[in-house]
Design a protein around this nucleic acid. Structure first.
Lengths: 216, 216
DNA sequence: ACCATTTTTGGACGATTGTCCAGTTTTTCT
DNA sequence: AGAAAAACTGGACAATCGTCCAAAAATGGT
C-alpha cells in the first residue's frame, strides 16, 4: 500500500512537474529565439516566464541542461510535423505539402529556426550540444532518405539505394537555401520557396536518374 | 615644412600602428576561432596576444569594433584566394583548383571557417554584424556568377545570364556541404571533397543546360 | 639632451553572469 | 487537522564581463 500511495503521488506530481517543465522550456525557447544563445541569461528566461530565478535551477540542473531541453523540444515539434506531412501521407502532392511546411517555417517560426542554426554552430564548439544536434540532423537525413525511397519505388527504379550521395546533397541544397533565407530575405520567404519549387524537381530528376547508380 | 614633418611622423606611426592592429586582429581571430563568439573575452585575446587589456581599447573602440575587424580580415584572406584561383587564372583545370582550395580550407583553416558560420549566425541577431557578413556573401555570389559566365561563354551558350537562380542554388549546395563537413566530418574532409567532385559537374550541367533558360 | 607624442600599464568601476541555499508557502496524503 | 513532501522565494556568492582612466614608459623629432 505504501508503495502504491507514494507511486500515485509521485506520478501525479510528476505530471504536474512535467507540465511546468514543458512551460519553462517553451518560454526559454522564446527568449533564446529572440536574443540568441550568446545573449540570453537565466534571469531573462525567469522574468519572461513570470517565475523566480531559483525555479529554473529547481527544474533544470544547470543552464546547459535547460538549453539541451530546448533543443529536444525543437526536434520534437519540427520533425514530427515533417514526418507526418511527408511519410505518413499519400505521395500525391507531397511536393506542395513540403513547400507549405517550409514556407510556414520561414514565416511563422522564423525565430525558432534561426535558433536552430545558432545551436548547430554552438555544437561546433561545445561537445555537450553535439549529440543533440547530431540526432536531429540524423533524423532529417533519414526522412529525406525514406522519401527518396518512396519516389524511387513509385518511379519503378531501383528499389534500394546503397551508399550513394543523394541524401547529403539534397539536404545541403535545402538547408543552404533555408539558411540564406534567414540571413537575407527574412521578410521575403516567397523567394526561397520559389527557388525550391524550381530546383527540387530538377535535382530529384538528377538524383533519381539511373546514371547516378551506374557511376559507381 | 611643419606640415611635411608631421605628415611623415604620423605616417610612420600610422604604419606601425597598423602593423600592431593587424597583429591584434590576427590573434583575436585565433582566439575566436578556438572558443567561439559566445565564449571569448577581451582578456582572453589580450593574454593570448601578450599585451595588456587596455591595449585592445587603445587600438579598437570597443569589442564590437574588434570583431568587425576580424570579419573583414577573414574576407580579405579567403576571398582573395578564391578570386585569384578562379577568376585570375586560366579556365583549364579550374575545378581541381577549386576543390584544392576547399580541401585546404577544411583541413588547415577549419577553425576559421567554423568562426565564419558563427559570425553569420550572430549577424542574424546583431544588426552591427549584418553588413560585414552581407558584403562577404555578396562577393561570393559575384564570384560564382562570374565563374558561371566564363563557363557559359566557353560552352558557346548564352553569353549573359539575367535573373536566373543558378547562383544561389550553387552557393547553397557548396555552402551546405561545407557546413555539414564542419559539423560532422571535421576529421574527414575528403568525404566532402569527393561529394563536391561528384555533384558539381552534374549540377553545372543542369544549370548550364538551355532548359534552364527557356523556363522563364 | 629635451620635450611632445605615442604607447603601454595595471587596476578600479559598475554591471551582469550562473550557481546555490536557508527559509517560506503551497500542495498532498493520512 | 496535521504532518510530510513538493514548490517556490528572494537574495547572497564569487566570478567574470566590457569599459575606462591616471600615470608610467617608450618613442622620435629637434
Amino acid at each position: 500500500m505504501v508503495v502504491c500511495k507514494t507511486v500515485t503521488r509521485s506520478a501525479r506530481s510528476q505530471t504536474k512537474a512535467d507540465a511546468k517543465r514543458a512551460y519553462l522550456i517553451e518560454q526559454a525557447t522564446r527568449c533564446l529565439a529572440e536574443k540568441g544563445y550568446a545573449r540570453v541569461s537565466l534571469r531573462d528566461i525567469a522574468r519572461e516566464s513570470g517565475v523566480s530565478l531559483g525555479i529554473l535551477h529547481y527544474y533544470f540542473a544547470s543552464k546547459e541542461d535547460l538549453l539541451l531541453a530546448v533543443i529536444s523540444g525543437y526536434k520534437e515539434r519540427f520533425l514530427r510535423e515533417l514526418e507526418q506531412e511527408l511519410l505518413s501521407a499519400p505521395l500525391e502532392g507531397w511536393m506542395d505539402r513540403l513547400l507549405a511546411v517550409l514556407r510556414r517555417a520561414l514565416v511563422e517560426d522564423q525565430a525558432v529556426h534561426r535558433l536552430w542554426y545558432d545551436f548547430q554552430v554552438q555544437a561546433m564548439y561545445l561537445p555537450a550540444f553535439r549529440d543533440g544536434v547530431r540526432e536531429i540532423r540524423a533524423r532529417l537525413f533519414e526522412l529525406i532518405g525514406e522519401m527518396l525511397d518512396r519516389l524511387r519505388r513509385e518511379a519503378g527504379l531501383s528499389p534500394l539505394t546503397e551508399a550513394d550521395e543523394a541524401v547529403p546533397l539534397l539536404y545541403s541544397l535545402i538547408d543552404g537555401l533555408f539558411f540564406q533565407a534567414l540571413l537575407h530575405e527574412a521578410d521575403d520567404p516567397e523567394q526561397t520557396v520559389n527557388r525550391l519549387e524550381q530546383a527540387l524537381p530538377r535535382m530529384l530528376a538528377l538524383l533519381l536518374s539511373p546514371s547516378s547508380q551506374t557511376e559507381r
